[in-house]
């Protein structure tokens, strides 16, 4: 497996790719907070927020529908919000029968449900775009600049660095289980659920030991190369005037969104 197997970064020459990672993280977070602050049913503001996302897609050179294609990931969670359709007091819109309940959809409930979905959908698109135009190590570096404690960013950097190595390790374990699980066609191999859980547990324990021993070797190798407690980067981030201007512009647009939502 290659080291960037998990990365969502798309190499392109674009305005968003060149932007300082701090700006991208900051604007993404402000945009998501702004979505959460918009009142229910602020359709015009939602529309403009969507246009903001579309514009960001355009500026990323990834194609206008890039974030849309991957935004389905947050949808299964919508199930959890479905109860507001029936529970908010309001004018009944339609009633239907489901299993043993008579469910009535109210207008207030529908308004709230759709608003929640739109907020989630807009927010996740911005987050998708963020990692598509920012290399993950740059993202971690930006978090460090934004005062996230160094111990956390270092752990995250290690997690990212060794994730693909340990994923390979997991695949080896899974392959080993597979190759020892021969079965007559039509019948299952192995014992009951408890036995299978024990096999999975032993695999997790084995993975732990291999990871632990690997971390020892990694540490020794790092000491040998002069590690003294913190990581250095050859890629110092510098805010240029264009970065400041973009931040100010994006914040102004989001501010106008908020006013539109309150009118």
């Amino acid at each position: 497996m290659h080291f960037d197997a998990f990365d969502r970064y798309h190499e392109k020459e674009s305005f968003l790719h060149r932007l300082d990672p701090r700006v991208k993280v900051l604007v993404t977070v402000i945009f998501i907070v702004s979505n959460a602050l918009l009142p229910d049913g602020a359709w015009i503001a939602f529309l403009f927020a969507w246009l903001f996302v579309l514009a960001a897609n355009l500026f990323s050179q990834l194609g206008i529908g890039y974030s849309l294609k991957r935004s389905i990931i947050a949808l299964p969670f919508a199930l959890i919000a479905i109860t507001v359709l029936f529970s908010m007091p309001g004018k009944p819109l339609s009633t239907f029968h489901f299993l043993m309940w008579n469910l009535t959809i109210t207008d207030a409930g529908l308004l709230r449900f759709v608003s929640i979905l739109i907020r989630a959908w807009l927010s996740v698109q911005m987050a998708i775009l963020l990692v598509a135009v920012t290399r993950f190590p740059d993202l971690i570096h930006a978090l460090e600049h934004l005062r996230v404690p160094a111990i956390l960013t270092t752990i995250i950097a290690f997690l990212y660095r060794y994730l693909f190595v340990l994923t390979d390790e997991v695949f080896r374990l899974l392959r080993a289980r597979e190759s020892r699980s021969a079965a007559v066609p039509g019948s299952r191999s192995g014992g009951g659920v408890l036995w299978r859980a024990k096999v999975a547990g032993n695999m997790a324990g084995q993975l732990f030991l291999r990871s632990y021993e690997r971390s020892d070797r990694i540490y020794n190798a790092m000491i040998a190369r002069g590690y003294a407690g913190h990581l250095y980067t050859l890629n110092p981030h510098e805010m240029k005037s264009g970065d400041y201007f973009t931040t100010a512009f994006a914040v102004a647009v989001i501010f106008i969104l908020q006013i539109l939502g309150r009118l």
Binding site: A157, F158, L166, V199, A204, L207, S211, I218
Partner: peptide
């Protein structure tokens, strides 16, 4: 710190083991 980083990757990877 390297230990915790690799352990974080371990938890992440261990979530892929299922039965």
């Amino acid at each position: 710190i390297p230990l915790m980083g690799v352990m974080a990757a371990f938890i992440f990877a261990a979530q892929m083991i299922n039965f």
